[in-house]
């Protein structure tokens, strides 16, 4: 039984790889974009970010009163298509909505069509994000950008009711950033396979036909002679 579980555990990995491949294939090269040099794919580990200082929190948002000190797990290091400025420094900003090719994400399924890249990404400093008011925000503080719309969630995140504290419950509060868990370009959480069901005491058999739990009866449901409550 455990064997099939570990197989199932691998499934998301296979799915992820397949999905990434498909996404890359789907991105037909757009005609009016300059070709991307090998330079654009440099990973951050080999090429640490330039001397740009962390822009810090935006001037407009003063934070919540009594908010605890949190340190966000850095995301800059985890970004593979980074730094963006290597290419974009040589290109004028183009606010027009259009299809983009790799290394850009192929999908922007966030905000029901209301967004374009520059709603969140800083047009002038491509290695940073930006608020709607135009303040520059580091990738490591994506919450400042997300929180503009998701106010309640941002507040919960700041105080620890949303998101996840890493490693320790005690001492310095290290928390995941929004984008550690939510893909900002496609924030919906997909269903996935669960780990296996509970075991039965060794030597005993599971109860026969376990799908028979009587569901509650609601007035909008037709009464089924067989499965309904007696």
């Amino acid at each position: 039984m455990r064997g099939s579980q570990s197989e199932r555990r691998l499934l998301p990995a296979i799915a992820l790889a397949a999905g990434l491949g498909a996404a890359l294939l789907a991105l037909a090269p757009a005609a009016d974009l300059p070709p991307i040099s090998e330079e654009g794919h440099r990973s951050l580990r080999e090429h640490p970010p330039g001397p740009e200082p962390d822009p810090g929190p935006p001037a407009g948002f003063t934070g919540y009163p009594d908010a605890p000190q949190v340190s966000v797990v850095s995301r800059r290091e985890a970004l593979s298509h980074y730094p963006c400025a290597d290419c974009h420094a040589h290109m004028p900003a183009n606010p027009e909505r259009r299809k983009l090719s790799a290394p850009h994400p192929g999908l922007l399924d966030h905000g029901e069509g209301r967004f374009w890249c520059l709603e969140c990404h800083d047009a002038d400093r491509r290695n940073e994000l930006a608020t709607l008011a135009g303040d520059t925000v580091s990738f490591d503080r994506a919450d400042q950008v997300c929180g503009q719309c998701h106010g309640d969630t941002h507040r919960d995140w700041t105080f620890g009711a949303h998101g996840k504290r890493v490693e320790k419950w005690q001492g310095e509060r290290r928390v995941y950033s929004c984008a550690h868990c939510h893909n900002p370009h496609d924030p919906a959480v997909r269903p996935r396979a669960p780990e296996g069901p509970p075991g039965i005491r060794a030597g005993l058999e599971p109860m026969p036909d376990k799908g028979r739990k009587h569901p509650p009866v609601y007035p909008w449901q037709p009464v089924d002679e067989e499965s309904g409550h007696e």
Partner: peptide, 29 residues
């Protein structure tokens, strides 16, 4: 069957534990 945590699959609209399913095993949750 040594598992300290048991995740109950509950019916929406009800918190009656007797309606819960302990052994749920669909393809996706």
């Amino acid at each position: 069957q040594m598992e300290y945590i048991r995740v109950l699959e509950m019916e929406e609209g009800s918190r009656n534990l007797e309606h819960s399913e302990h052994y749920y095993d669909p393809d996706t949750v």
